[in-house]
Design a binder for these strands. Structure first.
Length: 115
RNA sequence: UAAGACAUAAAAAGUGGUGGGGGGGAGGAAAGUCCGGGCACCCCAAGAUUUAAUCUUGGUCCUGACAGUGGAUAACGUCCACCGUUCGUGAGAAUAGGGAAAGUGCCACAGAGACAAUGUUUCUUUGUUUUAGGGGUAAUCUCCUAAAAUGGGGUAAAAGUGAAAAGUGAGGGCCUAAGAAUCCUCUCUCCGAUGGGAGACCAAUCGGAGUGGUAAACCCUGUCUGGUGCAAGAGCAAACCCCCCACCACUUUUUUUAAAAAGUGGUGGGGGGUAAAAGUAGCUCGCUUGAGUUCAACGGCAACGUUGGACCUAGAUAGAUGACUAUCACCCCGCAGUACUGCGGGGGACAGAACCCGGCUUAUUACUUGCUUGGGUU
RNA sequence: GGAAGAGUCGGAUAAUGGUUAUUCCAACGGAUUGCUAAUCCGUGACCCUUUUGGGUCUUGCGGGUUCGAAUCCCGCCUCUUCCG
């Protein structure tokens, strides 16, 4: 799990990213990104009631997205606020598919170091 | 449109942050939010102290809920035991199970009539009219008999309508034109007395009554129930407003200047108030030790209770267990051999605390044990 | 976390406990027309039938009360709204 230091928390931050951030989408995941003038990245995973009414399923999706971000943490350039928005089609998708899709999105947003 | 990033001499203590290590971390339903209770604040009433206010005790009426009896419990619409009813060959299973003789409403269509009602067909009695026959009379007319039409009265059984039909059903006697009411015997239901039981109720005898259904229609009787809910509520810091004190700056007045007074603004300190703000939009408390979990003994048919020992078992706040690999335990299947082992394959559901408990309801995996009934076989 | 409300044909919308559940729009079929539009008539679903027609199930789902439930009662499901 990502440390709490790298989590986006304040409502003002969310509003700013949603209003001014860049937008990317691939399949069943959407992304909002904005530079934050900090030396670290901050993530947020928004899994609403529309995705599933079962708390277990929502928590699991959130954790899976969290783990992908943690594994790719070192490859991502610092200084961004990133909001990850899955859509209801994510339900039942395999972990490897989710991981691939999210990494592709990071590439699209051009926040990965060239490797 | 921001402050978390970043920056700040040393030491000690405290606090906080970061990194590392160790330990702990969901349920039988955590769910639905359908009931009940604790807890908190507010409302009303009474009483005490009495300036405000505080403390103590209580919750009438309305509304709503519940409804066999006895018990369990903090309480319940829950649980246990028993009674009645219904179903089943049976072991058993189900059961919102007070009152229709307090009153009101409703009972479509059909039917005479849906509650002190009605008279259709049939039967019977009587009046009137007409016709036919007979008797009496000179005749009108009158009497008797029969038939038809029509009006009034009585009417058991049967037919018919409907979910339901006048009210327990059957037999006999009396009476009558035929009947009913009434009387006798048996039977059914309800009520009362006697007997058994703690009671609901049960068995028999005696006495009395017998005037449909519906209260998950209004209602009556009995019992319980004030309202809002941890987004309850309490405190601190910061913000804003007011007042006081100190210092600084500026302006005005008095004054020869110095200085003093007043006003405005700022900084610091003190006091009072405001909005108030939320499971977290600053922090703390409430917040997890509680009608707690577990073991034993005793009491009780049981639900449960009493006593003693042991244990501490989530308290987050963008919100807690994820991915892959290996190994071990459990269950199932197959193969191999001596009751066990080895190899291979498969499986673990429903689902995640948010103040805390007791229930109900719903979702759902795998397995185990005991008792009993019916059938088959021996 | 807490508090309210709703569910009737594809979409809207009626219905004192009482025939076979109403109306409008849409869709489909037919009539009318040389062809359309408009107008008129019919159509809930499934099964059997060449048609006429017949049977069964129907007011989110499952029970109950009642002679009889869209309606009354109980338990679920789904959806919507609100809470400084």
């Amino acid at each position: 799990m990502l440390s709490r230091k790298y989590k986006l928390k304040r409502d003002n931050d969310f509003k700013r990213v949603f209003r001014q951030g860049r937008y990317y989408q691939e399949d069943f995941i959407k992304l909002k990104i904005l530079e934050n003038n900090l030396k670290i990245n901050r993530f947020a995973f928004v899994v609403g009631l529309k995705i599933s009414k079962k708390a277990v399923k929502r928590n699991k999706i959130r954790r899976q997205l969290d783990v992908v971000s943690q594994q790719e943490f070192d490859r991502i350039k610092p200084g961004f606020d990133i909001i990850v928005l899955p859509s209801p089609e994510i339900l039942g998708k395999d972990y490897q598919v989710i991981k691939k899709t999210l990494i592709n999105l990071f590439k699209k947003a051009k926040i990965l170091w060239d490797s």
